[in-house]
Design a protein around this nucleic acid. Structure first.
Lengths: 229, 229
DNA sequence: CCAAAAGTGTTTCACGTACACCCATGC
DNA sequence: GCATGGGTGTACGTGAAACACTTTTGG
């Protein structure tokens, strides 16, 4: 079976930059290519968009197929369409970025026949295609967005300590915060629910656990509230 | 001549939301369709991406062809790919938004065989395809971006008065500003060059003209400066 | 008892905000 | 001379930033 058109059409793909946060480091999931071009090179998970699925669906499907990741925060990032970005033919790719609760879901880093692994964002090797550029864009977007939208919580387990939250922000934004000021500010928004639980199995005083109040955030947002770190 | 592929491919188009600012109002350029589907309806300028041109090039080319507009601020907005957004077949469209110095370049609102016209953003009729949604996205992006990047100047002539600038911000953000505070803030950034010229042909005291210092902005940006209204 | 991180208030300073009057020009 | 918008300074309050010590727990 084949499909014929009057004019040449670019191929259309999706690529996903999947971020996780673990051990005080921001990580990206990469896949080792088992086919040319760029065989053996690391690349972003992604693949062709089917003609009967939306772009979002395609991104989620590829993510699931290639990394086993599902039900995560996923947002469109940018569409790249430079000539020659794929040596075989013209390929336009809609890039997405995803945020996963690494420490919670325990994602299997290897699935399928492929080799998938987490890399610290500062230890990423040279990637296939123009995926370096896409990754850089995603990082930029994450840094910009984390300040004024409560997406940082997508990278933490549902229950977290204020220190974990602070470290997350410090890592993503590459910037230190004062502990007291950070707590004051984040708590003053009234978006965190203080739980009756504390950390377990730590070799020091256990910290209180909190939960992000998504419901409250949606309410406040309607009334003109703006999250801002 | 025709082109054949193993799998079905979506068609790929670009659409442009072109903003202008005139008479204290934010305007969008629309084109009246002369072919089905949506014949006679107003739509965003746009068209198919050729297989040998980048997405940015395609957007600029379509803009030039359909509206005569060239050399403007142009930025990718979002890629829409819902099923059924075009009744004929699957079409994925990369949306762009452009900012033009309306009062300066004097763009011809009608070119080609087509009917092109400026609409106040609050007087836009129901558009073809999902162009309403794209326009709404573009407005949102403009409102968000104008606050923390000096793109407002793209909508003004090269020489402008502080009142013009203030009115632009008030229009885009749908919010009033205090005259003294606005001037204090904008001038304190040191990004405006005070010219030795004043307005001409006004029926009241003529205002001083200013120019945006792009050079200085690029310098400051490198050193970590952030524009913020 | 030592190490490691949790938790907690106050002072200072900068910046945002509110606010009213005189000036220049064209008609 | 009057209508229209141009141009200017100060006082006040809020919120960001700086800063150090005590507490709890496990080993």
């Amino acid at each position: 079976m084949s499909f014929t058109y009057q004019y040449a059409r670019p191929a259309l793909t999706v690529d996903c930059v999947v971020f996780g946060f673990d051990e005080g480091e921001l990580k990206v999931m990469l896949i080792q290519r088992d086919l040319p071009p760029f065989e053996g090179k690391w690349a972003l998970p992604g693949g062709f968009v089917r003609v009967d699925e939306t772009l979002d669906d395609a991104a989620r499907r590829e993510l699931e197929e290639e990394t086993g990741i599902s039900k995560v925060f996923l947002e469109q990032l940018y569409t790249v369409g430079d000539l020659g970005r794929d040596p075989r033919e013209r390929v336009v790719s809609v890039a997405y970025y995803a945020l996963v609760k690494l420490s919670d879901y325990r994602i299997r880093p290897t699935t399928d026949a492929r080799n998938a692994a987490w890399f610290g964002v500062s230890d990423v090797p040279k990637l296939a295609f123009d995926h370096d550029k896409i990754l850089a864009l995603a990082l930029q977007r994450l840094q910009g967005k984390v300040r004024y939208q409560p997406i940082g919580f997508e990278l933490l387990p549902p229950k977290f300590t204020l220190s974990q939250l602070q470290h997350l922000y410090e890592t993503v934004l590459e910037q230190k915060f004062d502990k007291r000021n950070f707590r004051k500010k984040i708590l003053s928004m009234g978006l965190l629910i203080e739980l009756d639980e504390i950390e377990q199995d730590v070799a020091h005083r256990a910290a209180r656990l909190y939960r992000f109040d998504e419901r409250k955030y949606q309410q406040l947002k309607k009334r003109g509230f703006n999250f801002e770190l």
